[in-house]
Each structure stands twice: as C-alpha cells, then as structure tokens.
Design a protein around this nucleic acid. Structure first.
Lengths: 241, 241
DNA sequence: GCATGTGAACTCTTTCACAGCG
DNA sequence: CGCTGTGAAAGAGTTCACATGC
C-alpha cells in the first residue's frame, strides 16, 4: 500500500491476503491459549473479525491445511502461517530516532514477543547518544552503516523527524536494509525491491475525523460563507519526536 | 478497512480516496511552505508519492478545484481538502492507557498541530492516576463516561493492554464516542456507525518480514524436514504498554 | 497548447454459492 | 452430513487515454 507493489513471487500470495495473515496468526494464538485444538473457518474468521469466505480464500493461497467436514487444527495452521510469513527466523531491528515515539517503540514488548529483536538504537542528538533506553545504549546515527552490517539488521524503524527520514531511509537502504517501518509523517522514496510500510497517526486521525463529520451532520458539505479552517490545520509538518 | 464500511454519504467519496486526502493535505502544506503558489497534478502527485491520474480522480470526487491548462492553487486546494476532511472544527481526544505508547501519544506533537486536542488521559493503574503526563493530569479510567461527556470528546485513542481494549471501546461507544483509534493488538467489535482505525505494529512488522523473506531467498517455501518456528512466535498476546 | 476531469478498460479484492471430500 | 476449497460473479480501486475547456 505504501511502496510500489513488490514483484510477485511465483507462488504469488495476494497483498491483501498477506496483510491479514498476521491477524489470523494472532487469532489462532488466542484460540490456542483458550485451549481450542480445532476450529472451523467460521470460528477463526469471527476471532479475526473477517468474513469466513475470505478467510478460506486467503488460506487457499497457502495450501490445503484444513479437513473437510471438520475444520483446522489450530497448532498446525498456526505453524503453517508463521512459516509462510517467515517467522521461522528471528529478525534484527534497528530503531532510528529516540524521541517520545522511538523510546516507546524500543520498549515495545510486541517486538520481542514475536520473532523481532531490537538490536540497536540510533539518534542524531549528542545529548541522547550514550544514554540507555530499554537496556540498550543509544549510539550515534553516524554509525548506522556499521551497525547494520555488524548486527545483521533486517528491518529499520524510522522514528525521526520528517526532515531527517528520507536521508535515514537512503542510508538504511544503502547499508542493505530492504524493509523499513516508517513513523515519520513523510513519503519515503525507495528503490524497487525495498518494502516500506508506514504508520501515520495524523493520517489515521484525519480519516476518523472525516467519518465522524459525515456521521454527525447530515448536511451537505457546501461552502458556508463565513466558514474557515482552524489555523492549526494550516500549520505545517509536525515532528514525530 | 477495520470496521464494517460505514454508510456512504450521498456525495460518496470512496474509502480509498478518503485515506489519501490527508496525504495530499500534507503534500500541499509542504509545497506551500516552499513558497509554491500553483502546482500541477503531476507535481502534487510526486510530492504525495502517488500516480497523477489517481490524484486527479481522487480530487474529482470532491469537486472541480483545478484550472485546465494551469493546475491547482495550492492554498485553495488545501482549504478545500481540509474542509472535506472536516478539519474546520477542532476535535477533542482522550487517550486511554498510559504505558510507554500512551505516554508517547500524549506527547505527540502531531495531535496538536492538526485540529486535534488531547483533553484527557485515563489509566486503570492507581500508581499512574494523579501523575502528570504532557501537562495533563492522568485520571482514573472509572471516570471515562464523565470525561467524555464533560469534555465533549469526539475521538478515543485506545492504548491499553489487549485484554482491556474491548471493554474500553465498549465504554467509549456507550459514552457517545463514534471514532476510535486502536493501538491494542486485538480486534475491536463495535456497533454499526462507529468507525475504528487500527495501528498495529506487530502486523506491520510481520508484513515486512514476509516480503523480506520473499526477497532474500528465491527458494520455494516447501517444508524442510528439520525446520521449526521460533519459540517466541508461539508465545501469545503481547501488550501495548 | 496544455493540464484537468472523466469514461472506459483493466486489475485486484471480496463475496457468493456449491461441488467435493472426509 | 458438514465444512473446506474454489470457480464464477460482483464490487472496488487503479490506470489509461483523450475530450474538454481555460
């Protein structure tokens, strides 16, 4: 959705399906924790919040892991999805930018509980460099290339101000990182083959605002003579930090 | 994408278009800051990282705000998009759950620089209640209904552990909140008419992992005899806090 | 002349409905 | 008989290519 759609592998799994696999994985984990050994597509779809036909279609892209008349073995399906996603290997993650958000991310338990390990933290601010966050020493962003190479970093998390994000991304890509999670409110341009996903709080809030507006007033959005946009809206690029 | 697609207004703007309007708004702000008064669909599309035909199609859903042979007036288009999104009114936001992420969100400048004001912080932990975060006193989540009513809260941000998220969402909805931004790694079920957007770090990372895997090894994802999923992956529901 | 706005073609995604298998 | 897996239909979203109008 963010970057150009990457080249499809021979065994092409549709992008929309890929985006839902983590959801299914989580739902299966919840079911397993509740002691459920087998589930129907209906059950799993309900747990994942999707339509059961869609779930079956999605799973059909991976293979035939169910039993007709019975359903799916929770543990087995979980294993197959995890393998499809590529969670058989741990991946090393570097977080660049340790403002509010970067620090929260460094402490985020979700990284560790899946196959992701935050192995390095980088910041450009000399006052930040050398301090300890989430048990790791913050290193100077100048060391980016070395850190990526030495620690075999697979995924870069960009939590810098918008102004620095493109340069950081360029350097990550140059150092061999092919997967970037971008929290900076800016569009990142990357070469073919590099995958960027973005998490954008302002955008999400604005989408909610749009729907909220449509819901409350059923008036047509015509242009009332005295209307004006809040000055805050016209203020420019906020930072992530 | 998260909740049921909400009922379309008469002047139906496609959901995919709505999701891009904030992007265009940001790109226009960047152009305006650079002193650009007029831009072509090509210029704006480049700044927003989309195809120019798509940009024109998107804008056509809002009205005819361009001039053939010339392009768009940056300020005027910015105003029109802001109005369409509904940023003519400030919206009050409550953040529920002040763990790592919740605190980072409370401090997030992006809330304030757009038309969103964080007016209340709520947490269930007695050690957290009464403390000050981002200049606001953290109040007990028991006060949720009162806070929503008294402070005219339009948007609820859920940054609680997954286990508490559904209950918090239910109470937000019960108190009249129709727009929820969910950071908890769980599916929220809400009534028709309530809009939920989710921000899910684990999911994004896993999508990246999938692509990263496909990129590096061109081997078929067959089942090697000795392969196993990392134990961490089988560990269950991580928390946001 | 030139860039917008748009019908039409195309692609991707979701849903339906049922054949097929355990 | 029940539930999966899947062709076929329906629906969304994107891209093309050009008529339209400044």
């Amino acid at each position: 959705m963010t970057a150009r759609s990457s080249a499809e592998a021979p065994r092409g799994v549709p992008e929309a399906t890929v985006a839902r696999l983590p959801l299914y994985l989580r739902a299966l984990t919840t079911l397993a924790d509740a002691g459920t050994a087998t589930c129907s597509s209906e059950d799993l779809a309900a747990a994942a919040g999707v339509n059961s036909a869609m779930l079956r279609k999605d799973l059909s892209h991976l293979g035939s892991y169910g039993t007709r008349g019975v359903g799916y073995d929770v543990d087995h399906l979980r294993y197959e999805i995890a393998r499809e996603i590529g969670l058989t290997t741990d991946r090393n993650v570097v977080v660049v930018g340790l403002g509010n958000l970067g620090q929260a991310l460094a402490n985020y338990a979700g990284f560790r509980s899946r196959g992701f390990r935050v192995v390095a933290l980088l910041d450009a601010d000399p006052r930040m460099v050398g301090s300890t966050v989430a048990g790791l020493e913050v290193r100077d962003v100048a060391e980016l290339e070395r850190v990526v190479a030495e620690l075999d970093v697979a995924i870069g998390v960009v939590a810098t101000p918008a102004t620095a994000a493109q340069e950081v991304a360029d350097r990550l890509v140059g150092a061999g990182v092919a997967a970037i999670l971008n929290f900076a409110p800016t569009v990142l341009t990357v070469p073919e083959g590099v995958e960027v996903r973005k998490v954008d709080l302002s955008t999400e809030l604005q989408i909610l605002a749009f729907h909220e507006q449509r819901r409350s007033g059923e008036y047509l959005p015509t242009d009332p003579p005295g209307s004006s946009v809040s000055p805050a809206v016209l203020a420019g690029g906020e930072e992530v930090r």
